[in-house]
């Protein structure tokens, strides 16, 4: 499994390099090759993900898997490989090309594609070489819930969309600071930031809501002001401000790009930063 992920990591690195070269030499066939390779990396990583899911299910089911189909399905859902820090890094990295290729098909090339592929590569590198425990651990009782799958999937897809928004914002700020031929035009980037922020905001909201419902059934409190919850609220508020400023106050361009950067810092804090604080999401570390 880890070899597959290693190959996927190298593929993402290759994609980033090819897409940057494609931009520098303005070569359409290299763009196509880069994207094709990104699809290949995504397929490979999906395989690794399913393999780990299967192994995790096997481990939980033991020699006597539940005989009833419904119980089997329940166990399959519980055993999704999303329950510790390593899993989350790998899944975050999977979400980036998946989100990019599915929701931002037309824009995912050149520099933006390279940023997304590079982010996916770095997350896999952190998972593989960052001293993160990679073994499949049995689930603690609090995580045995149907909400685990949907909560985590939605949150990380949201993070991925917000990463795309951040990439576009970064390109916008560079382009704005010193205009370059090779970078996408400003209005295009501006619209992309907005679209990615909407999608990310929606998914983030849905992630927070599912988390709240889960917390209500597990702990009897839909909101406990846990640092992870606080941080997600901060992120949510920043993107809410971005959408309001743009839709109703007519902010565009640089100011929206800076807000997208700020929002992404909050995403990073929500995901990584909280690991250093006392949190009920402690199974993340």
């Amino acid at each position: 499994m880890s070899q597959l992920l290693g190959v996927a990591m190298l593929i993402y690195l290759g994609v980033a390099i090819i897409l940057v070269m494609a931009e520098l030499w303005s070569s359409p066939w290299m763009q196509r090759a880069g994207r094709g390779l990104l699809w290949a990396g995504l397929a490979l990583q999906s395989g690794a993900l399913i393999g780990r899911w299967y192994a995790s299910y096997q481990m939980a089911a033991g020699p006597t898997p539940p005989p009833v189909l419904l119980e089997k399905l329940r166990l399959v859902i519980f055993q999704a490989p999303l329950s510790n820090y390593y899993d989350s890094l790998v899944f975050f990295s999977w979400c980036l090309p998946a989100m990019g290729l599915l929701a931002f098909r037309r824009q995912l090339q050149g520099w933006l594609g390279a940023i997304v592929a590079m982010a996916a590569c770095l997350l896999l590198a952190k998972a593989s070489f960052g001293g993160v425990a990679a073994d499949i651990q049995p689930l603690m009782p609090a995580l045995k819930s149907n909400w685990l799958l949907i909560h985590v999937v939605v949150c990380f897809l949201g993070y991925a969309a917000l990463t795309v928004a951040f990439g576009a914002a970064l390109l916008y700020l560079i382009q704005d600071y010193s205009p370059r031929e090779a970078l996408p035009a400003l209005p295009l980037l501006d619209r992309l930031i907005y679209r990615a922020a909407i999608l990310g905001f929606f998914l983030l909201t849905f992630g927070i809501l599912t988390g709240a419902v889960w917390a209500e059934t597990a702990w009897g409190k839909y909101w406990s002001w846990d640092p992870k919850e606080d941080a997600s609220l901060v992120t949510w508020l920043i993107y809410a401000a971005l959408l309001h400023a743009r839709l109703l106050k007519g902010w565009q361009g640089r100011r929206i790009a800076w807000l997208a950067v700020l929002g992404f810092l909050a995403v990073i804090f929500t995901y990584f930063g909280v690991n250093y604080l006392q949190s009920m999401h402690a199974y993340m570390t």
Binding site: P227, A231, L237, I238, K249, F269, V274
Partner: peptide, 18 residues
């Protein structure tokens, strides 16, 4: 006012998280 309040609340929540 809305945007101002949203950003203020974000700042307060950061304090609350840290």
């Amino acid at each position: 006012l809305t945007v101002f309040l949203l950003l203020i609340l974000a700042a307060v929540a950061i304090l609350g998280a840290v």
